[in-house]
Amino acid sequence: MMAIISRGFSGRRSAAVVKLPPGQYLTTDFPVLSAGPTPNVPLDNWQLTIDDGTKVLRKWDWESFRGLPNETFTVDLHCVTRWSKLGATWEGVSLDTLLAEVNTDASYAFVHSYGDYTTNLPLKDLLNQKAWIAFRFDGGELALEHGGPARLLVPHLYLWKSAKWIRRITLTHEDKPGFWEGLGYHNYGDPWREQRYWGE
């Protein structure tokens, strides 16, 4: 369908040429979107687990997690609510590092957060330097409302896939929708193909 021209609307195009996924606009701040209250997990009780649905494959407490080799990386973030934030610098542990000693033939990952948020994605989207568990943002500790003490970051998918307050990753053979995926949002969520909602 041809778009309807909005009489009197000219818009505010920024002079700088930046490449954004379709339907996104640039923001320089960092909006917060979560479905419920922000959980506060004391570092003494914090755990990160990788399991296969029945048995634990790997497990870290905060100290052993922070002892893992970490990386500083700069990525663009795209939220389904249409803002994009470019060039955000983070520190975190690559999922390649976390999954290095995990032997699995699973195809999917189901991610659980403190506060009971969940999301799902193909396991391959966590591998090959595409995903991290981040604990620092912009040179400081990761704020609670942004997912601290540690959150998943999968920047090539819409940001709801980057579960805040990550607690557990379950590797499975069958895909199953997480929180937003079960509420009408797209199962995969590629911003460049504008996969916002089911049926797109």
């Binding site: 923001t27 701040d29 960092f30 909006p31 479905a35 209250p37 803002w83």
Partner: peptide
């Protein structure tokens, strides 16, 4: 249940 506006 929460609905937040960003700083924008």
């Amino acid at each position: 249940r929460a609905e937040r506006f960003g700083p924008t």
